[in-house]
Write a protein that binds this DNA or RNA. Structure first.
Lengths: 146, 146
DNA sequence: TGTTATTGGTTCAACGTTGAACGAAAGGCC
DNA sequence: GGCCTTTCGTTCAACGTTGAACCAATAACA
């Protein structure tokens, strides 16, 4: 009984459930064939633009290289991403967003809108902002002490 | 750019990473062959005791029945849990903790201690408690609006 | 220079999960 | 009684992930 009543355990439990539900909701809302991981990569390119190597993407998303290989292969198969060899460094590849990838991201955003609006009706920006510093600190600690 | 700067998206992103890191840390700390899911079920029985049907466990852990079948089969194979048919209701089974399961949970707790202590050195109970109401509300909303 | 270490990317088996299908048992309702 | 509907648990393919092995290319250093 001492276990789950502890606030740290409770918080991590809640966080785990939220993550699961949020990811499931994301995948369910997204157009068919687009996973949350794929949408994340598309979002990354929409925000940052340009090119990125698979290894950089993997570390940006806290994911193994193998997982990123998988995600990129699926994105490439759908034509959402272009992958070319880096002639300056034979080990690397350069990944970039295609026009079709941008369209797919836009479609994903549209599909997500109703749910995001519902979320923003239920909670205020201020509530999320209030929670953010602690979440960020916790994430950083988890990252440094893994 | 408007996307990830939004506090709701940021919060969910942080929550997702925390959940991933926390689960990974949990699995790494636990004795070999014990998954986070299995440890969760053991913990449930240590706290509540008695018997529980697989369906109840599945809904308590927000997991599909198939996933719970899998977890229980592995627990049973290790002798951590006893599963018997419910003679009152031919559809149900009754799951209960074995003495060996209790020992395994104890061992899991021990293995987890260093990490939990580190976490409690880095953050105070008050910080977790302060974050809890919002997390709980968010979890409930996600659950109701899935 | 040559040798060793590191980095980048792929592949593979294993895991835990979902979602769907299924059969068996129980409940609800004329 | 009989017929739907719901509940329970299992099975199966598919997915995304990890961790490890591996090879190729580069970097570091003697």
């Amino acid at each position: 009984m001492a276990l789950k009543d502890r606030p740290d355990v409770s918080a991590l439990t809640e966080i785990g459930i939220i993550a699961q539900l949020s990811n499931a909701a994301l995948e369910r809302s997204l157009p068919d064939g687009m996973s949350a991981a794929q949408f994340g990569v598309l979002t990354h390119f929409m925000r940052r633009g340009g090119e990125e190597s698979p290894a950089k993407l993997a570390s940006a998303f806290q994911v193994t290289k193998g997982a990123m290989t998988n995600t990129l292969q699926r994105l490439q198969a759908q034509g959402f991403v272009a992958v070319v060899a880096d002639e300056a460094d034979g080990r690397k590849k350069r990944v970039s967003l295609t026009a079709e990838g941008a369209r797919a991201h836009e479609a994903g955003l549209m599909a997500l809108r109703p749910r995001m609006e519902g979320l923003r009706e239920a909670f205020t920006d201020r509530e999320f902002e209030a929670a953010l510093p602690f979440l960020k600190a916790l994430r950083i600690w988890m990252d440094e002490n893994r």
